[in-house]
Design a protein around this nucleic acid. Sequence first.
RNA 1: GCCGACGUAGCUCAGAUGGCAGAGCGGCUCACUCGUAAUGAGCAGGUCUGGGGUUCGAUUCCCCACGUCGGCUCCA
Length: 406
Amino acid sequence: MEMARQRDHRRLGRELGLFSFHDEGPGFPFFHPKGMRVINALLDYWRREHVAAGYEETRTPIMLERTLWERSGHWDNYKDNMYFTTIDEVDFAVKPMNCPGGTLIYKSEQHSYRDFPLRMAELGQVHRHEMSGVLHGLFRVRVFTQDDAHIYCLPEQVEDEVVGVIELVRRMYGTFGFDRVHVELSTRPEKSIGSDAMWKTAESALAAALERAELPYTLNPGDGAFYGPKIDFHIEDVMGRTWQCATCQLDFAMPERLDLDYVGEDNQRHRPVMIHRTVLGSLERFLAILIEHYGGALPAWLAPVQVAVVPVADRHIGYAQQVRCALESEGLRVEVDSRSESVSKKIRDGEVSKVPFMLVVGEREVEQHSVTLRSRGNRDTQPLALSEAATALVAKCTPPAVKPCL
RNA sequence: GCCGACGUAGCUCAGAUGGCAGAGCGGCUCACUCGUAAUGAGCAGGUCUGGGGUUCGAUUCCCCACGUCGGCUCCA
């Protein structure tokens, strides 16, 4: 219980200077410089993994005309969770989902079956007016960034694509060592669009993909999105509560409603199938899970400060700055603790703020152009030439490898 | 949104039958110039969440709002 409190991402987020919340914006998180460093490191990895998996990245507007949301079905099915405004006497809605905007990109040119599968990712910021009682740190907010993608494909490509999404999710979750992930298949809810036949086909396609991926799952009847059934991945927080992260939703309805088409082999127009999917789910929620999973001690490649340089006395600050420059030019995130505090105090603060590596530099190091390395949570120290240290630290801070291109 | 609890300094928390607001950490200043988990001293910092009410007097009691926490429900 006490341990859970220590690992609570809300506490760690404040203590580590990652993000904050304010009364002026309930459910709207503010990300501080250190928080953005973590997010950007995560996104660098995310982008490399998605390029390797054959995705292109897009971006669509935060706000679009209400008429689009009426056509997509969001007006009828999701209005209560949406924010609206009027500009020049035209009604707009702030997007709660990225799909309708994404389809406008799709529709901006003609598509052939040869284009498929077309995988269009978007790190889309969505706003949802969640009920006040459900807000919960970064786990449940009113604005969040989905690592979204829409895959347009032929009906016969659906299963392969869903298996591909499942594999990408497993691969990326494996990177973080998540072992307590459970999977659900959610079927048609009461409030929904599309025909019974569509839903049956879609539900069995998802089940088939799960079977093929040999992924155990539980059935969650009536919990699908209003436009299609979905596979969800849930991860536990420190309190044992589970949070939905990855999702893979099959959608035959929106292509119909928004009139998407492609030209087939037969030279006729057809409806594409649309798969909506996320891997991390929401960056905010995923970051919260990472913080709790690692108890704030993020792996070096994600740490906001990877290396803290600790000068023994003020006269060593100049050399400490040289060390910082040398390491920064290798792409490392480095800070010099130039406060007039004792070495012990600076080491302690480095440990408390969970910096993976500390380099103490004093008389000896200045003379020898070296550093003394201390790793997080480890009392042992290791003297190294500066150039050796740079090589070693770069190796220890290397982001995960992505799926090799074959 | 519903049920319950809570809201005192940047953070963690004391406090008083209703009578001048407290500590530690953090911040600032000064001294120290230090070799691997807290150097010392001094100073500043508060509309006691906001708005009404009761009262000679409200941070304290009552009402309302907002926010937070726990749960329900809902989701990424």
